[in-house]
Write a protein that binds this DNA or RNA. Sequence first.
DNA 1: CGTATATTTGAGTGCTTTCAATACAAGTGG
DNA 2: CCACTTGTATTGAAAGCACTCAAATATACG
Lengths: 240, 240
Amino acid sequence: MDNPLVAKLENVADLTKDQREVLRGLCDHARVMPPNYDILREGDKPNRLHLILEGWAIRYNNLADGSRQITAFLIPGDFCDLHTMVLQQMDHSIATLGPAKIAYIPLQKLHELIRQQPELAQALWWATLVDEGVLRAWIVNLGRRDAFKRTAHLMCEMYERMNNVGLVAGDQFLMPLTQVEIADSLGLTPVHVNRVIQKLRQDKLIVFEREQLTICDIERLKRLSDFDPAYLHPEHVRLD
Amino acid sequence: MDNPLVAKLENVADLTKDQREVLRGLCDHARVMPPNYDILREGDKPNRLHLILEGWAIRYNNLADGSRQITAFLIPGDFCDLHTMVLQQMDHSIATLGPAKIAYIPLQKLHELIRQQPELAQALWWATLVDEGVLRAWIVNLGRRDAFKRTAHLMCEMYERMNNVGLVAGDQFLMPLTQVEIADSLGLTPVHVNRVIQKLRQDKLIVFEREQLTICDIERLKRLSDFDPAYLHPEHVRLD
DNA sequence: CGTATATTTGAGTGCTTTCAATACAAGTGG
DNA sequence: CCACTTGTATTGAAAGCACTCAAATATACG
C-alpha cells in the first residue's frame, strides 16, 4: 500500500516526486502497537509526533464521573498531535483501537521540513485545519441531530475520509469500532446505539459485521443525515 | 483599551515592543459593524482576514431543517478566519451579536508577517490550536454533560477567556447572548435554557441581566461543571 | 406608546437513558 | 480440550431529562 499521508495530501495539492519522498521519509521509524494502547496521555509533553499508518485510533477525554467522550477518530494518514509543534502539553489522550501501525517522527525532523519545504508545511496545516472543520461538524452533529441521523452522519464521514486515503473498496471499509466506542463518540449510550444500528440495518442502509461496514446506499445515507462533504475541504489548497 | 490580540498573546509569549507594534498594525483598518451582521457566509472565499476588536460574534451552521448550531463564540482578540490562510472556502458563517468592531486584514499582510516574523506566526498558530482545543471541549460538553452542567461549563469558559483579554471586572463581564443563542450553542432549546438559568440563579451561582453576567462563586461553578482550564493552554508557547 | 424581541410558565409528550438480564464470541488457564 | 472469564451485542421494561406546543409576561426600541 502507498503511504496514506501522501495519498491524503495528493487529493488537494500537487506534490513533486521529491516532496512525496520527504513525506515517506517522515514515516521511517514505525511500529505496530497493540489494541487499546495509549499512544499519548493527557498531560504528556511529547517530543515526537505520531502519525497513523495502519489501523484506527481515538482522541478522547475521561470525565470526572468516569464517562468518556471520544472527540476524534484517527485513520491512516492522520497526525495524532501536530499541535505539539506549538503547544507543550496534551489536553487529551490518544489510544489505538485495533492493532495499529504508528510512525514516530522526531519534532526536529518536522521543524526542518517546515524550514526547507514551506509548501509542504502548508499542506500539513491544511490537514490541521480540516481536522478543525471535522470538530465543528461533530459539534453540529451532537447539538442538532437525533441519534439516528447522528449515527448515519458519522458513517458518511468515515466513508468519505477512508475513501480519501484509498481504503474504501466498492462500498465497504474496515471500521474497527465497537458499539461502545460509537456511543462514546456520539454522546449516546451503547444500548441506544445498538437500537439505532439495528434500524439502519432494517432500513437496508448498512451492513455492519466483524468490523466491516458496508454502505448499501450512500446517497440515501447522506441525504437522510444531511451530510455535506464540504467541511472536509476536498478543494485544492491555497499555496501562496 | 489595549489591543485585545496583544493582551491575549502576551499571556503565553514574551513579545518585543516591535512585535506588539506589528500586531497593532494589523488592526489598522477597523470598522464597527451592526448587530446580527454576517461578516462571512458559508461558501465565501474571503481575501482578507477578520479579527474581533470589540463585541462578540458567533461561528455557526444552518441546518437543512431550519435549525442552527453555533460552534464558537468569538470575543475580542479572536480571529474569525485564520484558516483562510490555507483553505479556500468558508464551511460555515460568522455573524456579529451586538455591535462589534472588526479589523480587516489583507491576506497579503499576514503572509508578510509570517515570512518576516516567524515567532509571531508561531503565536498565531498557538491561537488556532487553542481554538481547536476549545472545539474539543465543546464536544465533550455536548456529548457527556447534562443541560445544567453544560450551561455552567460554558459560563466558566467565557469567564476564563474574557479574563485572558482583560475584560473581566471583578467577577462580572459582558456576555451579549440571548437565551436563544445560548441554546443554539449548547444543543438545547431556548425554553430549557431558560429553566436551567433560573436554577443557576436560584443556586446563587450567577446573576445574568442586561447582557451582564456575574459569577457569584466561580470555584463552585467550576467544580460542578467539571471545568479544567488546561484546554485553553495558558502555558507558555513553544517557540523553537 | 405600539411593535418586535426576549423571557417566563405550564402541561403533555417522547427520545434516550437506566437497570437488568440474556446470548454470544473470543481468549485464558488448567 | 473444556471450564471460566471477559467483552460485546441484544432485548425488555420503566424512568427521566429535555422537547414541543402554547400562551403570558417582560423588555427594548423607534
